[in-house]
Simulated scan of single mutants.
Amino acid sequence: MTAQPPASPPRTDTGVLAGELRVALASLVRRLREQADGTDLTRSQSSVLLRLEREGPATATALARAEGVRPQSMAKIVQALESAGLVGGAPDPKDGRKTLLSLTDAAREEFRTGRLAKQDWLTKALDTTLTAEEIDRLASVTDLLRRLAQFP
């Protein structure tokens, strides 16, 4: 009688896993957004603010290109953000005809307090919902999630 190699465990169906991850992460992101709500910003306005925070000052034309919107649409977004006191403009040192848009101190403070609210909520959720072993398991996958987020 010949020895049979041990059966390998069934492989996880990546298509099913992708669907489950998408739903779970979307729910978590929604819950995190709820924690810092209180602004009446549209997604487009929030996206522009996040881009300015991440990448620094930019012209409205560069923002429109990066966000994939028409310059006229970006002009409306920028106007709303300026009216709310979240974005300010200054002459571009390389080309005085252009205006560089950047975050105001008020926008930076909103980001800071919003992030703190989200982190506080998530800390409480982790501490009250998961066991110590589950928290360790979750910690072990954060690097994997970061790598997935970098995929083109």
Rank of each mutant, 00 (worst) to 15 (best):
V141E: 13
R54L: 07
L101R: 09
R33K: 06
G68Y: 11
Q35H: 03
S73A: 15
A80T: 11
L130W: 07
E134V: 02
T39E: 15
M74D: 09
L103I: 01
A84W: 02
T142Y: 10
T59N: 08
R137A: 14
D143S: 12
R112G: 00
D127P: 01
P57M: 04
T104D: 01
L122S: 01
Q45T: 13
L63P: 12
E109A: 03
E55N: 08
P57K: 10
R115E: 14
R70G: 15
R51Q: 15
A84T: 09
V87W: 01
L28D: 03
V141W: 11
S46C: 14
E82C: 08
S73T: 15
D95A: 10
P93A: 08
R31K: 06
L52R: 01
R147S: 14
A125Q: 14
R31Q: 13
A106I: 00
G68M: 08
R115K: 12
A125V: 10
K76W: 05
S102W: 00
L49T: 02
E82W: 01
E55P: 01
A64E: 09
G89R: 05
Q79P: 08
K124T: 15
K98F: 13
V78K: 00
L86D: 00
E134C: 06
V69A: 06
K118H: 09
R22Y: 11
S46L: 13
R54W: 06
T12W: 06
F111W: 10
V23Q: 05
D40A: 07
A62G: 15
D37P: 02
A3M: 10
E67D: 11
R147Y: 15
L28M: 07
Q72R: 07
A90G: 10
M1H: 08
W121I: 06
Q72V: 12
L50N: 11
Q119L: 09
A125F: 08
T113I: 11
D143N: 10
T129K: 05
A106M: 02
A139F: 01
P71Q: 05
L144G: 15
A62P: 14
P93Q: 10
V141M: 14
R54D: 14
A3T: 14
I77K: 02
L116Y: 10
T129N: 13
D105L: 09
V16R: 12
Q150G: 11
A80M: 05
G89L: 04
L63S: 06
I135P: 05
I77C: 01
E34D: 11
T99S: 13
P9W: 04
T39G: 14
G15W: 05
D143M: 05
L17Y: 05
R108N: 03
A149L: 15
G89F: 03
L148C: 12
P5L: 07
T131G: 08
A36P: 00
A139P: 00
F151A: 12
D40N: 08
A60L: 03
L21N: 04
